[in-house]
Design a protein around this nucleic acid. Sequence first.
DNA 1: GTGGTCTAGACCACC
DNA 2: GTGGTCTAGACCACG
Lengths: 139, 139, 139, 139
Amino acid sequence: MVFQVNFKSGKPPYLQLADQVKAAAASGALQAGEPLPSIRPLAEQLRLNRNTVAKAYSELEAQGVIETVAGKGCFLKANNTPFKQEVRERLVTADIDAAVVQAHHLQIGREAFLKLVHQRLDYFEHQRAQAKQASGVPA
Amino acid sequence: MVFQVNFKSGKPPYLQLADQVKAAAASGALQAGEPLPSIRPLAEQLRLNRNTVAKAYSELEAQGVIETVAGKGCFLKANNTPFKQEVRERLVTADIDAAVVQAHHLQIGREAFLKLVHQRLDYFEHQRAQAKQASGVPA
Amino acid sequence: MVFQVNFKSGKPPYLQLADQVKAAAASGALQAGEPLPSIRPLAEQLRLNRNTVAKAYSELEAQGVIETVAGKGCFLKANNTPFKQEVRERLVTADIDAAVVQAHHLQIGREAFLKLVHQRLDYFEHQRAQAKQASGVPA
Amino acid sequence: MVFQVNFKSGKPPYLQLADQVKAAAASGALQAGEPLPSIRPLAEQLRLNRNTVAKAYSELEAQGVIETVAGKGCFLKANNTPFKQEVRERLVTADIDAAVVQAHHLQIGREAFLKLVHQRLDYFEHQRAQAKQASGVPA
DNA sequence: GTGGTCTAGACCACC
DNA sequence: GTGGTCTAGACCACG
C-alpha cells in the first residue's frame, strides 16, 4: 500500500489517511483480515507524528472498518457496518450531495454526471473482482 | 447558485464556500461581471456568521477572482479561463469516488446507491427551480 | 454536573469521564440539548490535560451520545443510537457479562443478583422521571 | 472458577485477572489453601500469553493474596477476610449500573435488558456445569 | 516490536 | 470564548 498526504489541501492529514485506507479497502487493494501498516513506520514514511496516524486508525476503528489489537497491530475487518439503515443512508447522502453540488458548479449536466457515476461504480467493482481473483489464485 | 457547507468535513466553511464560487466561475456557471449573492442573505441561508462569508469573499478578492465595490456588492472578474471539460470531470470524479467508497463501507449496494443519486439530483433540481421562480417573481 | 476521575483505578481517565457523562444522561441529570461543560475549564477542574477531556468527548460523539459544534460547544443528543440491533445487543451483553462474572466471584446468587438488577433499573427510571418533572415544571 | 478478560476495557488484562481472583477470595468462592488454576491452561483458555497470567499471579503474590510453591502451583493464602455482604453488593452494583447505563444509551428497554440478563446467567451456569462435569470425570 | 494513554504547548477556524 | 489539529516526547501493557 502506498499512502500519501497533501499538507496544502486544507483537509486534515488524519482524515486523508483514513479515506485512503477506506478507498484501498473498497477497491480490494486491502483484503479483510490483512494487517495495515504499523503506526510508527507509517508515521515516519508520511512525515506525520505517530499520534496523527493513530488518530486516523482510531477513526477507522470507530467506523467499524478496522480492528486494532494492542501489541499485535491493526487489521481490516470484514465489511459489516454496525450502523442502522437510516444512518447509513444519511451518511452516504452527504457524500452524494457534495458530488452533485460540485457537478452543478462545474456545469456537468445530469446525464454526464450519471455516466460518470456508473463509470466509477464499474471501476471499483472491477478492481475488487480482480483483487479477489488475484488473492484466490496466488502464484 | 446553490451553495452548501458541511460543518463536519474538517474543511473550514469559508474555504468550502470560496471553493464553490471558484468552481462555479471555472465552469462558466457564474459569468464575468455577474454579481455574487450578497453577504447577509447568503450567511443566513448557509447558517454561517456574516464574518465567515465575508472572509470567503475577501479570500476570493485577494486571489483576484472577484472584485468588491463598496456599497454595491461583489462581482466576478473577467479573465477566469474556465476549466477544460477534462479537468472538470476529474474534479467531480474525485467527489463521486468518495461517495462510492463510503457506500461500499456502509454496505449500500449499486442499486440503492443509484436510487439515492437520482433522488438527490431530483432534489437539487427542484430546489433550483423553486429559487428561480422566487427570484423571477420578487416582491 | 460534578465529574471526577480516579487516577489510581487503572481505568483511563478519558473513559471514566465518558462513562460519567453517559451515566448523567441515563439518570436524567443531563437533558437532551443541554450543553456539556466546555473542554478547557473542565480539564482544569479535573486536573487533566485539555486533550484528554477532548478525547472523552470525541469518544462520546463517535458513540452518538453527544454532538459537538466547533466554536459553540458540545451538547447532549436526543437518545437515538446509530447502531444496528445486533451490535447494540452485543455491546450491552459485554457489560452484562462483566456484572455476572463479578457477581459469581462475590458469591452473589442468581436471585440476589436479579434483585439488584431490578433495583438499579428502578433507580434509574425513577431518577429520569424526577428529572423530567423538574425540567417540565421549573421554578 | 470462571475468569474472563475484556480486551477493550482499557484495564490491563493482568489486572482484570488479579481482581477477579481477589474477588473470588474475598467472597469465599476460593477457600484458603485451595489451588488456583495453573498458568498454561488458564492462559490458553483466556487467550492470553503465559507471561500475562504469570504477571497477574506474581502481582497477587506480592500483595500477599496467594503463595506460589515452585513445581506445585499457586495456592490461596489464609487470613483473607471475606468482604461483608454489603461491600460485595456495592461492588457488583457498580457493574450492574454500567450495564444499565449502556442499555439506556443503546435504547434497549427494560424487558429486553432483563431477557439478556437471564440469558447470560443461564449461559454462565451452563458453562460452570459443563466444567464441573469435565473435572469430575477426568481422563 | 506492537498499540494506548497522557502531558504540554502551539496554531487554526469560528463566534 | 469555543472546539480541532498537529507535534513532541514520555510511560505503560503486551508479545
